[in-house]
Design a protein around this nucleic acid. Structure first.
Lengths: 345, 345
DNA sequence: CTGTTAGCGCCTTCAA
DNA sequence: TTGAAGGCGCTAACAG
């Protein structure tokens, strides 16, 4: 039924397939007699003709497809970003192939193979980790690769990210303002730029305030709920006296930390204040609602999409990397330390 | 760099492209002399040859691509389902094009046009609403369309869903067991099968227990946080005496309802018990943690993916629809009604 | 303004 | 076991 081809339409109208092809392509339809064009359009419509993107792509060397690579589909933070990308794309008739690395380099490698084999016009990846430079650089010889959210030092790849350093600083200053003096952080994997940036901004700001951050001797293997929970348990067990405030490097880890807190009979923010990062869609609905930093995923997605499309059309273009500003979102998971807590010191 | 074609490999080895094509296809490589085959495989590897899925697809009439259509990417409930689908697909070298309808029929129509134009081998849609029958039936003449989560009466389309009726019943019985007698529901759109099923199972069970459900005169336009909030506000304003328990037709709506409750100074579950549906990833982390019904998204995704692949290979196959069982997940958003509340009666 | 020709990269005949 | 030929559906280049 959708096996209607250009030839069928051409035959029905009584013209050559090329003419149909031209008439149906906005960029070339002006070369066609207005009357013939209208007739072609009409007949095409009636017959239910739809351009075969595959065939067209083969001929033109473009697939009108871009890849989106995310670390973890279960992390709700990526939903807005994906949406931003798709919204930017749909107007251009481009569709997105979405794949997940699960923070595993081998998987990532396979994913990029698949995407390459499909001749995508470009890829946006939010899954870059230190050590991926070689793979990504090689891949980017075939099509533009845009780094989103996570950057990669000296990879030379165009990057749309977010000022994690400043975000960490905002959080630190906020906790200091509340009166906290014993402050810890639950670190995400240090081969991911975002977490390095957050950590650095956070620590620097606290040091400037004369406070030394309590960091565990361990980072999360992955920035997930499970790891957040594990690290918080670790902290509760081995750190004494306990901190009055904790910075979990993303909202997912904060959720896990919250769980550990509850399991240990500690209340948040009464006993320990907790802050996260990302302003994931669910951060406003946790118990207590999470104080966090907003990373504008939707906008970031839009921009990354526009960038990758531009690059796919003009590969030589060298564009400046872009960094979006963070926004502190104050909710209820952080409060002033109680006198009782303070006395621990 | 990845412009390595069959011809290049053939040239390098000194054989005909067909031979390379055969040697590299597991299903036909047995026709090839083992030595030549090994050499071809090796050279292909060295040159970095990757099958051009586009060209191959054009020739074979398969794109090794399937479409996933969801109503709302921001609904975290779909993440596990998408993951289930992708996991089932990746072993077969199939990739997924993901698109969102935002519960809008025109968008859905466009999405299917795009997918058809890309010659997908099949589509899994979780976005079906009453009235979509015509479009979907027509589309399914071109490639198999599998309905996931939401069914469509007399559409004749293969469906992997979940027993919403039973889910509603479980919730009703649980609330009755807790001692509730004044019970209301916040209904999702009634042109979506899931909500009809939930509502029906819920009401039937309550009627059997001699309780009449309080239903608002209005349903949610969409099953979203915003609509859940609006309906709960509506209920708090116009229903008197207030119910002691409320069933929000999905977790997102429950979140919104929770927000409205808080804004009105009511506590959950002390003043009003609340239950949701789906067991979305974040349901365990709300305040209070949400009592809900688990809809096994991951499994559902896997099954739907296997089904659509099977159908794409054997279109004539008629398979039975499948319905997965619900599971009541008791957390803390529902409790026995307080004496004070009861006295309202 | 429209038709002709050629070929994108692959795979499926058919022939050797 | 391998080669040759043809064409999937489309569009770019060249004629006319």
């Amino acid at each position: 039924m959708s096996n209607v081809t250009l030839r069928d339409v051409a035959h029905a109208v009584g013209v050559h397939p090329s003419t149909v092809s031209r008439a149906l392509d906005p960029k070339r339809s002006w070369t066609i007699n207005e009357q013939t064009r209208q007739k072609i359009v009409q007949v095409a419509q009636e017959l239910g003709y739809k351009t075969d993107t595959i065939a067209s792509g083969l001929r033109r060397g473009r697939s009108e497809t871009i890849g989106i690579v995310v670390p973890d589909l279960a992390n709700p933070f990526y939903a807005p970003m994906i949406r931003g990308i798709e919204n930017a794309l749909e107007g251009r008739g481009i569709m997105a192939l979405i794949a997940e690395t699960q923070e595993d380099r081998e998987r990532m490698s396979k994913v990029f193979d698949h995407l390459a084999s499909r001749r995508v016009d470009g890829v946006i990846t939010a899954a870059a980790r230190k050590g991926d430079e070689t793979i990504l650089r090689k891949v980017s010889e075939n099509f533009p690769v845009v780094l989103a959210v996570r950057s990669l030092e000296r990879s030379g790849l165009p990057t749309i990210t977010h000022d994690d350093e400043l975000g960490g600083k905002l959080l630190a200053e906020y906790l200091v303002t509340l009166g906290h003096k014993r402050i810890a952080q639950l670190s995400g994997p240090q081969d991911i730029s975002s977490f390095v940036g957050r950590s650095h901004g956070f620590c620097t700001a606290l040091t400037a305030a004369g406070i030394e951050v309590i960091s565990l001797d361990e980072c999360a293997a992955n920035p997930t709920i499970a790891e957040g929970k594990r690290l918080m348990q670790h902290l509760l067990t081995f750190v004494s006296p306990l901190p009055t405030a904790v910075f979990a490097h993303n909202d997912l880890m904060a959720l896990g930390a919250l769980e550990a807190l509850k399991a240990a009979g500690m209340r948040c923010p009464e006993d320990i204040s907790l802050v996260g990062y990302n302003d994931s869609p669910q951060a406003a609905y946790t118990a207590p609602p999470l104080t966090t930093v907003r990373l504008p995923g939707y906008e970031l997605g839009r921009i990354a999409a526009e960038l990758v499309v531009t690059l796919s059309e003009q590969p030589e273009l060298v564009l400046q990397n872009m960094s979006l500003p963070p926004l502190l979102v104050v909710r209820q998971s952080a409060a002033a330390p109680r006198a009782g807590s303070k006395s621990h010191q």
